[in-house]
């Protein structure tokens, strides 16, 4: 089966920012997380994928169709999108939004939308303007899911949700992914959500892809070593000599130095006295972005 999203060498230049040569894909059955600091280029990438802005160079396709400003909108029938805030006008009621979905999408599932609203505690008669930020995000998610899309594109979709609601949403996304023809591309600052759900993690910084690795590689194989000053040189030497470890990321923190270890099992065998813990996406990203490459 072909990729759900194919991004090839995308470039976009603004006066003070350049998105440079971004390439990746989202395969069916995959949840791809897009991470990075504020202004790194995540939302610009998503906008390019959705055809909301035009690329200076490169191309993006969604469900096999090119996505740019001239797109006819046909592929959007199979795509659900959630931005970082509830975008519906304040004057609309929840039930109006359900009706709008029914008009807009051929595959709209009215009972499912009502069921989602009920499970989220969204009263159908409430106006969008009366909803809290979290409830607004839930409404956006219900709208994105109720036409059974093949692809979800989520831009900070879990922002503003309390931990319990976030867990519910993640559960919903796991259910969504039970069909292996589907996929999700989600950008998030809440990397713990991606730890739980992502298959692939792409980090963008200053408009460039810094890493694009499988989540297993981060959570199951990589580690963070807590080094004392005396151990640093030995570890750096070992990391450099180890195949595939041309980059050594270290960050001094208080009395210890943290080091990103690509293979923590091998590291533990070599340095049994050094504390090495499982890496999370957040610690991995922090070390790659802030830890000097020695």
């Amino acid at each position: 089966m072909s990729d759900l999203i194919q991004v090839c060498n995308l470039c976009k230049t603004y006066a003070d920012f350049t998105l440079d040569d971004i390439s990746f894909s989202v395969e069916p059955g995959m949840v791809v997380g897009l991470i990075g600091s504020n202004g790194a280029g995540k939302t610009t990438t998503l906008k390019l994928i959705l055809g909301l802005i035009n690329a200076d160079k490169g191309s993006a396709s969604v469900l096999g169709q090119p996505s740019d400003a001239t797109t006819t909108g046909a592929f959007k029938e199979k795509v659900g999108v959630v931005f970082d805030s509830c975008s519906f006008p304040a004057s609309m009621r929840v039930m109006d939004i359900g009706k709008l979905g029914a008009v807009a999408y051929g595959n709209w599932d009215k009972p499912y939308f009502s069921q989602l609203c009920e499970s989220f505690g969204l009263a159908l008669s409430k106006k969008v303007g009366e909803l809290s930020r979290g409830m607004g995000m839930k409404l956006s998610l219900a709208f994105a899911l109720a036409h059974h899309p093949q692809l979800l594109i989520l831009d900070e979709a879990t922002a503003g949700l309390d931990p319990l609601a976030r867990e519910d949403v993640l559960e919903m996304l796991r259910d969504f992914m039970s069909d292996q023809t589907r996929g999700i591309l989600m950008s998030s600052h809440i990397t713990s959500d991606l730890d739980k759900i992502a298959d692939q993690v792409i980090c963008i910084d200053n408009g460039k892809i810094i890493f694009d690795v499988a989540q297993d590689q981060i959570n199951d194989i990589a580690g963070i070593a807590h080094l004392r000053s005396l151990e640093v040189d030995d570890v750096v030497a070992w990391l450099k000599s180890t195949e595939g470890s041309s980059s050594v990321y270290m960050l001094k923190q208080g009395y210890e130095t943290l080091a990103l270890i690509p293979d923590r099992i091998a590291f533990a065998q070599k340095f049994p006295d050094v504390v090495v813990e499982r890496a999370t996406i957040e610690s991995y990203m922090t070390l790659v972005l802030k830890g000097g490459n020695r």
Binding site: G73, V81, F83, S85, S87, F88, S91, A104, Y105
Partner: peptide
């Protein structure tokens, strides 16, 4: 005016609508 609030017109373009429509 509603188009500009909360990026409604940006979100609307993610629905099955072309810019012409």
């Amino acid at each position: 005016a509603y188009d500009d609030v909360n990026d409604w017109q940006r979100f609307r373009l993610t629905m099955p609508l072309s810019r012409r429509q």
